[in-house]
Design a protein around this nucleic acid. Structure first.
Lengths: 121, 121
DNA sequence: TCTATAGTTCGGTCATAAACGAACAATTGA
DNA sequence: TCAATTGTTCGTTTATGACCGAACTATAGA
């Protein structure tokens, strides 16, 4: 299979990281890895999009330096580059994940479900 | 003059904040307000773009809930909504500003100057 | 070998946003 | 009142990216 490119730690840039995290789908993916505490295969992500789109999001996270992707069989397992991110931008990942948790809670209270398709006609 | 709309604290959303901060120009503007410790007029921002573009960036920051804009004479003074941001997403602003400082330092070491037009032919 | 599974790549559509200059609005000060 | 200053709005161009389905690749297992 093709070699997957991961940027060096020193080449991880703040605007790119923030941009990658600014998409609700990608934020959800990162939170899922973060909360599970383990690598996640693409197929496990609980997002309502086509698999080709998911694949693109996975690539965006990898190229921003947020995730590491390794192949296992037909699967691609995504993990967070926690050490690299903490070395580069101390506390950023934890802070964003805490913020995400809060944001989701508030959204739930208001019955906002940004990642699910709205079924009510 | 037209009333400037500022979102309520509760309507400040994480993806929107991260998106607003993911643009190098806006990140620079926010850092300038943050570091100066006081309101900044648009004309004071040290960014190499047309004033119409700057005005749009100011609007983007305001609508994301990051800045507050008040009119004083012909000027618009931008301040950070520090309390609202900290209430909503504790530590996020400080963490991002620290990350920005680091990112800028590393860029300077490499003679990267993302906000200046490259003059070397 | 054949099939199913997991993911990538490609071609296309559509929406958003970053950039500019020109024209406009509002305020200050002469 | 007139000119200068400061910023906004508008129309346009251009680039990016989110999304999909179809076709493809690669691996695992029957």
């Amino acid at each position: 299979m093709k070699l997957l490119h991961h940027p060096d730690r020193k080449d991880i840039r703040l605007p790119s990281v923030l941009y990658a995290l600014s998409d609700p789908v990608r934020l959800h993916m990162v939170a899922q890895i973060y909360n599970s505490g383990e690598e996640q295969a693409c197929k496990c992500f609980d997002v309502p999009i086509a698999k080709s789109t998911l694949s693109q999001h996975a690539r965006a996270l990898r190229e921003a330096g947020i995730t590491h992707t390794r192949a296992q069989g037909t699967q691609r397992l995504l993990s967070l580059r926690t050490e690299d991110l903490n070395a580069r931008f101390p506390g950023l990942l934890d802070t964003v994940m805490n913020a995400y948790r809060k944001d989701q809670q508030e959204a739930n209270l208001r019955n906002d479900h940004p990642l699910e398709e709205t079924q009510q006609g």
